[in-house]
């Protein structure tokens, strides 16, 4: 016992000595290369239109990074971005929050109860196998072109990854742990709270990550297809007017939104995973 401990300690000590320095440098190096390649790309994109002559007609379809940057700057400075951004963001967050509020408890219930599982399984399988875009015309018809249809579209897209992942995580619950908390008089609610949900958390987080992607997609699709307002609408209208820089600006805002949400989930995951072996070493 003491020998294997000593061995483990040695390995840990070696890791401490060597790895952080190296990973630190490696991380810096890859950041450098990553940022570098982006800068090079932007530079080339910026310069090439000045080197070759493009006909005025073709020019309509193109833009440069500086124009996009300028457009973004103006949009934020004059505040014209806030309204469409606000509409898109509320559609996104309302739909996502609803999907979590429904998908998580439902996933736990279906995972824990054989009866509910049997009842819901055909619907979930069928619904999940159907491409969600098919519902779009119907949803627009029912919920109109305002916030309502957007929220529902986002909700439907985000629901299934959360629901299905939660379900999978719940099915994977350790029976011994359930017995342990039951032996201390835990109710079914306590079992869910103390064992089932924490155990399913890695699955739920993975589902959440997928759901964010689907939610952004939902917003974009809803707004491209027909909405009164929003970033997507702004992009479609700008494209109609050959304002390519505005289209790109919308694209960048969407991308930033997704990245920010993914980063948020990452923070959440790091917080919730402190107890897991693979995370202990990184802290």
């Amino acid at each position: 016992m003491s020998e294997s401990h000593a061995l483990k300690a040695d390995i840990a000590a070696d890791d401490d000595l060597v790895t952080p320095g190296r990973t630190g440098w490696q991380r810096f190096e890859s950041t450098l290369y990553g940022a570098g390649s982006i800068v090079v790309l932007l530079l080339v994109w910026e310069i090439v239109p000045h080197l070759i002559t493009i006909s005025a007609g073709t020019k309509l379809f193109f833009t440069t990074p500086s124009q996009i940057g300028g457009t973004l700057w103006t949009m934020f400075a004059t505040g014209t971005i806030w309204k469409p951004l606000g509409v898109s963001a509320s559609g996104f967050s309302l739909g996502l929050v609803l999907a979590i509020a429904v998908g998580l408890p439902l996933g736990v219930l279906i995972g824990r109860s054989r009866t509910l599982n049997a009842m819901f399984d055909p619907f979930i399988t069928a619904f999940n196998a159907t491409p969600r875009l098919v519902f779009l015309p119907l949803l627009m018809l029912w919920f109109g072109l305002g916030l309502g249809s957007k929220v529902v579209i986002v909700f439907i897209g985000a629901l299934f990854p959360i629901l299905i992942n939660t379900y999978e995580g719940v099915r994977n619950t350790d029976r011994v742990l359930v017995n342990v908390v039951r032996s201390f008089g835990a109710s079914e609610w306590d079992v869910a709270r103390l064992v089932v949900v924490p155990n399913a958390m890695p699955y739920i987080i993975a589902g959440l990550r997928l759901a964010i992607g689907r939610a952004v997609l939902g917003v974009v699709v809803a707004e491209f297809f027909g909405s009164e307002s929003g970033l997507g609408v702004m992009m479609v209208q700008a494209a109609g007017r050959y304002q390519v820089a505005v289209v790109f600006a919308g694209l960048i805002v969407f991308a930033a939104l997704s990245l920010a949400m993914t980063a948020l989930v990452q923070i959440l995951e790091n917080r919730l995973s402190r107890w897991r072996p693979q995370h202990a070493g990184n802290e």
């Binding site: 342990v180 032996s183 008089g185």
Partner: peptide, 16 residues
């Protein structure tokens, strides 16, 4: 189950 009994589990059963 009841609070008059408690078990030391063979598989430990600690919540990780």
């Amino acid at each position: 189950p009841g609070t008059d009994r408690a078990m030391v589990f063979q598989e430990f059963g600690l919540l990780p």
